[in-house]
Design a protein around this nucleic acid. Structure first.
Length: 667
DNA sequence: GTGGAAGGGTTTTTT
DNA sequence: ACCCTTCCAC
């Protein structure tokens, strides 16, 4: 049970040095910083360009240098649009480009598809019939609204129930993202509900109608409306195409048909479009992404130049030997084989453990060992398929006193107390927001959904915004209960627009409610204080509220630690989806157990199974030096009533010299 | 109408 | 573990 040893001599990295600010007046040293393929992409002039970038091949570096290069050549930074997967990723690229060149690079327009859609739609809101603006609703809000409609519908009558609200939301979203009729999605993916197609269609019509009534846009609507704006309003499309003369898209393999269309529409006039991605790392099929999208790019744009980045700068050779093998045995033929000049190190290890808790103890033991040997916790990550897969490990890490942050899974802004506080601000910002009124009023004793809706209707009829609550005619017994809330709204509407001040007013109103409602209120109160700190960074309430939906802080703990002790080192726990694009010295992949990874559900459909394999590939290629898989055995699977005992089928047939096997504890 | 308690059926991944 | 429904007391 020898654990992988650190290589005795530090491995020499052949990766180009990190970008440094150029000497005053000197140009950027492209030749020293980039390999020939990267250089070709960076120096590519006008026209369509497809960069197929393997894992760890310097994709971000290439995009960063190309931005700097364009700006250096005199392109107006505001005419460059850089769409990437997370806002953090695009900010980092622009920051690095600024270091290479100068601060002009910060003026590059960038963000996620959704944040770009938000910004654009705000500018053209009147064109698409949102004269009074709009509120972006997150998944939870969407489900609440669907839940209200669902409850109003007649039950099917045969004793069965309609799909739960979260399932309905998934069905509706899938139909949009895959651009398929609702009926087809139901028939293919939810066969057991396909006979309710009429009722479900009605629910969706109602959902669409009410979103419009309340000026709500959900995540999908942002893309739909942007697409609509570009297709239906030729003048707008021309203006946007003239404004953004260079389009760049990161992680193009994860775009869905609407997003790919949006890119085409924007680039149609000039064809100056560069997309970067890796078909082998496409892991968002569940929301409509199709790796075929990136392979079809040259068909959309005639004369596309294709550049392949195949040299890996991240991982040691034994890790690449393994990951190449993993992706080679895929059914689909992906387009590359990676190589590296980083030698040394041991092959990855697969560790069989006697159950889930043994898995957790193995990870804790190894993390402690690595730390003793000098690896910072910041350089290690634990990756897993789904958020709840790490629950047991979290307990063990707490017991061992190892600090960690968890990324992915449940979000800060999804917890009830955060949503409560935001709802108070939302009714002021958007008085038509019935969902937020329900939430705010429902917090008051003896007010439930019915009373809340009545009060909402009265306020709305008064059409004075949230202040309508102060003058709307209400029943006497409601008047008294509502007095504190009225005082709050009065204070909010009187105070000048200062986001942080409003946050404090709501906080002091909400604190007694929080204390009465939750036993664990001290922890939640700390979260709220974090939220207030975040609010202080904003000048406009609308921006704050939009950001909380589009790019919420990934974890409460992360921000807590970052704020309190920015230097404290910290282990990362992450879903594989949230780990995309990141890298660590040492990576642990949990639950490499057939039935968990791949999951039972994915085994019926070859396409789903392929995506699981790509997911494992993404996880494994995050590692630079050490890679551990753990496989707890004898796990009972309730869905199939069977005992799971075998390692992931993706690891079958990989020889011992590529993947070592161990048992923990020895048995 | 509200609020609490009890019991049966379902659990990925993200903007 | 959580959602959703149902049932019952106020």
């Amino acid at each position: 049970m020898a654990a992988p040893k650190k290589p005795s001599t530090p491995t020499k990295t052949t990766a180009p040095p990190d970008p440094m600010p150029p000497e005053a007046g000197a140009g950027i040293a492209y030749h020293q910083a980039l390999n020939p393929a990267q250089l070709e992409a960076v120096r590519f002039g006008d026209g369509p360009l497809l960069v197929l970038a393997g894992a760890g091949s310097g994709k971000t570096r290439t995009l960063t240098y190309r931005v700097a290069r364009l700006v250096e050549e005199g392109v107006d930074p505001r005419s460059i649009l850089l769409l990437s997967f997370t806002r953090k990723a695009s900010q980092e690229m622009l920051q690095r480009a600024s270091l290479l060149l100068d601060a002009r690079c910060r003026d590059v327009a960038g963000g996620t598809f959704h944040s770009f859609a938000n910004a654009t739609l705000r500018r053209y809101a009147a064109v698409i019939g949102f004269e009074q603006g709009f509120t972006i609703i997150d998944r939870g809000d969407a489900e609440d609204l669907i839940g209200i409609i669902r409850k109003e519908m007649d039950p099917p009558g045969d004793g069965r129930q309609l799909p739960r609200k979260s399932t309905l939301a998934t069905i509706f979203s899938r139909a949009v993202n895959k651009q398929r009729p609702l009926e087809d999605v139901l028939y293919d993916d939810y066969g057991h509900f396909s006979d309710m197609v009429d009722t479900i269609t009605t629910i969706r019509e109602q959902y669409t109608r009410r979103k419009r009534e309340h000026h709500f846009l959900d995540y999908d609507d942002l893309l739909i409306h942007l697409h609509l704006l570009l297709t239906e309003y030729e003048a707008v499309r021309q203006r946007l195409a003239a404004k953004y003369r260079y389009i760049m898209v990161d992680e193009y393999q994860d775009t869905n048909p609407i997003q790919a269309d949006i890119v085409s529409l924007l680039a149609d006039a000039h064809h100056n479009v560069m997309v970067v991605g890796d078909d082998a790392q496409s892991i968002y099929a569940f929301r409509g992404a199709d790796y075929q999208n990136i392979l079809d790019f040259p068909k959309r744009f005639q004369g596309t130049r294709i550049v392949k980045l195949e040299e890996n700068y991240r991982s040691l050779q034994p890790i690449l030997d393994f990951t190449n093998r993993l992706i080679e045995s895929a059914d689909a033929q992906y387009s590359k084989c990676l190589f590296t000049r980083r030698h040394g190190g041991l092959p990855p290890v697969l560790v069989m453990t006697a159950g889930e808790n043994a898995q957790s103890r193995y990870v804790v033991r190894e993390v402690a060992r690595l730390r003793r040997e000098g690896t910072s916790l910041d350089r290690m990550a634990i990756l897993f398929r789904a958020g709840f897969h790490a629950f047991d490990l979290e307990l063990e890490l707490n017991r061992a006193g190892i600090p960690f942050k968890k990324v992915g899974g449940f979000k800060f802004t999804e917890s009830a107390h955060i949503k409560d506080l935001l709802a108070h601000l939302r009714i002021v910002a958007a008085p038509d927001d019935q969902l937020s009124w329900r939430r705010v009023l429902g917090l008051i004793e003896k007010i439930g959904p019915k009373t809340a809706d009545r009060i909402f209707a009265a306020v709305r009829a008064h059409s004075q915004g949230a202040g309508g609550l102060l003058s709307a005619p209400l029943k006497m017994k409601n008047q008294a209960k509502l007095q504190p809330l009225k005082d709050l709204i009065g204070a909010l509407t009187d105070a000048p627009e200062a986001v942080a001040r409003w946050g404090e007013l709501v906080f002091s109103y909400y604190l007694p409610i929080l204390r009465a409602k939750y036993d664990d209120h001290p922890r939640r109160q700390r979260d709220l204080e974090q939220l207030l700190a975040i609010m202080a960074r904003y000048r406009h309430l609308d921006d704050f509220l939009s950001d909380m939906v589009l790019e919420p802080p990934s974890t409460a703990i992360e921000d807590g630690l970052a704020a309190a002790e920015p230097t404290a080192e910290c282990l990362t726990l992450s879903t594989i989806h949230s780990a995309k694009g990141l890298e660590w010295d040492t990576v642990f992949i949990l639950w490499a157990l057939d039935g968990r990874f791949p999951s039972m559900r994915s085994m019926e459909d070859p396409d789903d199974l392929e995506e699981e394999r790509r997911l494992m590939y993404v996880a494994a290629t995050r590692a630079e030096r050490e890679l551990h898989f753990t496989c707890p055995v004898q796990i009972f699977d309730r869905a199939t009533q069977s005992l799971l005992c075998d390692p992931s089928r993706f690891l079958d047939g990989i020889p011992e010299n590529v993947l070592r096997r161990e048992n923990y504890p020895d048995w």
